[in-house]
Design a protein around this nucleic acid. Structure first.
Length: 368
DNA sequence: GTCCAGAGAG
DNA sequence: CTCTCCGGAC
């Protein structure tokens, strides 16, 4: 398949198609500097070299990779300042509800269900959130979560939704700039609709999205998703959580993200590993009917949804992800830099160096 | 070398 | 539950 609009792009020769050819030992023609290629070397080594080259060259093409219209992001929420996004509206309504709750008047709902608290919220949770927001406004976090909402925000709704879905798929385990590059390439090549992906060759898709994490599987999932969207949803994306989860490569985390960003329909909290970890450290979630920590992000989501007011369901993700990348890190959390340690039951409880003595019941694999 | 981080397969 | 996927950070 020829890809005319990308002919000038130097990125193209470094896709997986060429990797295949290299391992076949049949081609060096597509590689701009084939002198670096040693067919006898282990595949991994060759790959790593080429990734470096890829990055050098893409840096030179920065101009082309940049989005034409940069989107403004809310620094704290991590969400785009797009007019139709319901976040602000939701906030406003929540404030209204609060101020008018004494008079008993009813505030109309903007597609957000009434707050359903089945569990008493943890004490000081609002102070904790406020503290994290403040820290986030000082620290710069590479928040790669929610990176998908920028996908095709200038497109018509249906195309935009499809772009959001594909971007979500690609964004997992992938740095935001890498994901963005992949989306940009797909967009440049008109490969961001169900129709075109359905027609495109899987190897072409692979080379477009390379080097996002797990690109082989994701390319194959993209084909399957395009197929399903065309046959069952007229080229649009599923509009319910249940049906999104039926798509290959879309699990609970991404399904909630797509519902939030793609449909502006908040069905649940988008819980990733950061939200999962931090909520447990704060003692915000527990296994049903116990005080034990939750075991999985899904369990965390259910537990968190039992008390967290709904207007916080969307912003909690970018907030905690950024916090988790800079301060409340998985390994050796920077409690010294944290301003809410007096409100955190886990503050200074974890090892500050890998060599330090493991506390009792710290790790399950202490074979002392 | 070891870990990371969503999803899926076994 | 564990392992795999892919690259990169450490």
């Amino acid at each position: 398949m020829s890809i005319p609009s990308l002919r000038n792009w130097k990125l193209i020769p470094f896709g997986p198609t060429q990797m295949k050819r290299m391992s076949d030992n049949t081609t060096t023609t597509l590689l701009s500097s084939s002198s670096n290629h040693h067919p006898s070397e282990p595949r991994v080594y060759v790959r790593k070299k080429r990734v470096k080259k890829n990055l050098e060259i893409s840096a030179g093409d920065e101009e082309e990779l940049k989005p034409q219209q940069p989107i403004q992001y809310n620094r704290l929420s991590g969400l785009p300042d797009i007019e139709d996004f319901t976040y602000k509206k939701t906030r406003k309504l929540a404030q209204l509800r609060k101020s008018e709750s004494t008079s008993g008047s009813h505030v109309p709902d903007a597609g957000v269900s009434p707050i359903l608290r089945t569990v008493k919220p943890p004490v000081n949770w609002e102070k904790v959130l406020e503290g994290i927001r403040k820290m986030r406004s000082f620290e710069d976090a590479p928040v790669d979560s929610m990176g998908c909402e920028k996908a095709g925000s200038s497109l018509p709704p249906k195309e935009r939704r499809f772009a959001v879905l594909i971007s979500s798929l690609l964004s997992s385990q992938t740095k935001d700039n890498v994901n963005h590059g992949a989306i940009q390439r797909l967009l440049e090549n008109d490969l961001l609709t169900a129709d075109s992906i359905e027609k495109a060759d899987e190897d072409t898709i692979k080379s477009m999205i390379y080097p996002v994490g797990f690109y082989t599987r994701k390319a194959s999932n993209m084909k399957k998703i395009a197929n399903i969207c065309l046959s069952k949803y007229d080229g649009d994306i599923p509009s319910t959580l249940e049906n999104l989860l039926q798509l290959p490569g879309i699990g609970p985390k991404m399904a909630h993200l797509v519902m939030n960003v793609g449909w502006n329909n908040v069905q649940g909290i988008c819980v990733d590993t950061h939200v999962h970890r931090i909520c447990n450290r704060l003692g915000w979630v527990s296994r049903k009917g116990t005080n034990q920590k939750t075991k999985s992000p899904e369990e965390t989501r259910e537990s968190l949804e039992r008390w967290l007011p709904k207007e916080e369901w969307v912003p909690i993700n970018p907030l905690l992800v950024g916090f988790g990348q800079t301060i409340c890190t998985p390994l050796r959390p920077q409690c010294g830099k944290c301003s809410i340690t007096d409100l955190c039951p886990s503050a200074f409880k974890e090892a500050s160096s890998p060599k330090s003595t493991p506390r009792k019941s710290q790790k399950r694999n202490n074979l002392s």
